[in-house]
Computed example of a mutant assay.
Amino acid sequence: MSFATPSTPRGRRVPRLRGAVTAAALGLAPLALSVLAAAPASAHGSMGDPVSRVAQCFAEGPESPRSAACQAAVAAGGTQALYDWNGIRIGDAGGRHQQLIPDGKLCSAGNDEFKGLDLARADWPATAVHSGAYTFKYRVTAPHKGTFEVYATKPGHDPAKPLAWSDLDLAHPVATSTDPVAADGFYTFSGTLPDRTGRQLLYAVWQRSDSPEAFYSCSDVDFGGAAAAKADTVKAAPAPTSAAPTPTPAVSTPSEQQIAAGADRSTVEHHGHGDDDPSTSAKPMPPTPNAPHPAGTSVPLAETGTPTGTSYAAIGGAAALALGSAALFLSVRQRATGRSRTAR
C-alpha cells in the first residue's frame, strides 16, 4: 500500500505520509475513547423518604450526631459508615439477598463497617406515615437501571429486637419499581403502605439489572395509632427526676451541601460515580427466569430488560483499533524517515 504517487517529489513524501497516518490515528482514538466512556458506571444511594437510618445519621452530622440512636451507631461502628452513607451494598448479590445477609444484619447488609445500623432500638428517628398511598424518594448519587422493592415489617414488630428476614412481609412488597427516572438527585416511585400501628421498619432493596450489585437500606417509620397513644400515656407519667429527656431530632435527608462537604471523607469509589470493586461486574446479567426472590417465589428481582451499555467486545475492538493505528503510524514514520535519509 502506497501513501504517495511515484511522481511526488521526495521532499514532500514524508509530510504527506505523516499527515495521512496521523489523521487516521487521531480519528480512531477519539472513537475508542468515546466507546470506553460508554461503559457502565456503578450506582450508589439510599432511601431518602422515608429517610434511611444511615442517611438520617449522616444528615445529623457524622462527628456529632444529635439523636441517641445515631450516637450509639457511631460508638459501635465509627463515623466512616456515615460518610459512606450511599454504599451499603453487596457487589455480587445477583438477587441472593437472603442467602448472603444473615438475620440481625439486614440494615448493614452484613457489612461490618455499618454494624451500628443493626442496633435494635426503639428510638431511631422515624418518619411519620399512615396507611395508604405513599411516594418513595430514593437518594441516588449514580443512576443506573434496576428494580426497587420495599418491604414492611409484619404487625406486632418489636423494634427493640434484632431485625430478621422473618420479620418482613416478603410476600407483599409495599412498593416495586423498575427503571424509574432519576430527577433532582432522587428516584421517585409510588407504593401503598399497609395497615399498621406504631413503629415499623421499611426495608428497601435496589438490585441493578446490568450488574449483580445490590443496595440496601432500613427506614424507621411511625404509623401512630394505638401504640403511639400508649407511648404518649407513658410519657405523660411523672418523671422520676427533674432532668428532661433529650428530644429525638426531626427526620431529614442529607442536603446537597452536606453530601458535597462529606465527599472527600467517603471511601465509596469515586464518591458514587464509578466502581473499582472487583466483586462488582459491569457485564450485563444474563436472563434468570428462576432467580431467587426475597419472598421465595420465582419472580426475577434482578432482571429489568436489555442493558443500555456498550458490549465489552466492542470496547476492546475499538481500543485495539486505536492502538493498532498508533503502532502503524510509528512504523510507517520510521520507514519513511529511513528512506529520506537514504535518498540524501
Rank of each mutant, 00 (worst) to 15 (best):
G27I: 06
A55E: 12
S67K: 02
L168Q: 01
A291D: 15
G305K: 02
G198S: 12
A263C: 03
V35C: 13
R344P: 01
D118M: 12
D123W: 01
V299E: 15
T22F: 12
G156S: 03
A227E: 11
A160S: 12
Q99L: 12
H130I: 02
D92H: 08
G77Y: 11
P102W: 00
L202N: 07
K137T: 11
Q258N: 03
E303F: 12
S166N: 11
V14W: 10
A69E: 00
S108K: 08
L170I: 01
V268H: 08
P278M: 07
A282Y: 11
S177D: 13
L202Y: 10
K137W: 04
T176S: 14
G191C: 13
T310H: 08
P65K: 13
R53M: 06
T5M: 12
G316S: 15
P65V: 09
P9D: 06
P254E: 02
D103M: 00
K145R: 11
A75D: 10
K115Y: 05
A68I: 06
K230H: 09
G48D: 13
P102L: 10
F189S: 12
F114Y: 14
V14P: 05
F189Q: 10
P15T: 02
S131K: 10
T79P: 12
S166L: 04
F3Q: 00
K145I: 14
S255P: 04
A282I: 07
K154M: 08
Q334M: 15
L170D: 14
H271T: 09
I101H: 05
S211G: 08
K154T: 09
D92Y: 04
G104P: 10
A20H: 05
F186T: 14
A313E: 12
S46H: 03
T246Y: 00
A318T: 07
S46Q: 07
Q56I: 01
A24D: 05
G296T: 03
R341D: 05
Y138W: 14
A239W: 01
R96Q: 11
T297K: 07
Q80M: 03
Q257Y: 09
A122G: 12
K161P: 04
G324K: 09
R344L: 08
E60T: 03
P62N: 06
A120I: 08
P286R: 09
A336Q: 02
F114Q: 07
G45L: 11
N111R: 10
A204M: 06
A295I: 04
T127I: 10
F114W: 07
S266I: 05
R66Q: 14
I90V: 14
V14K: 09
P6Y: 08
R53Q: 03
K161R: 14
E113A: 04
Y216H: 03
A236N: 06
S2C: 08
M285R: 13
L106N: 01
A229K: 02
T178P: 06
T253E: 15
R335T: 02
A243P: 01
V74N: 04
R335H: 13
P289K: 11
R13A: 05
A72Y: 05
D103N: 13
V74A: 07
G191W: 10
H293C: 06
A302N: 09
T248E: 02
V35H: 06
M1C: 03
V268I: 15
A126E: 04
A261T: 01
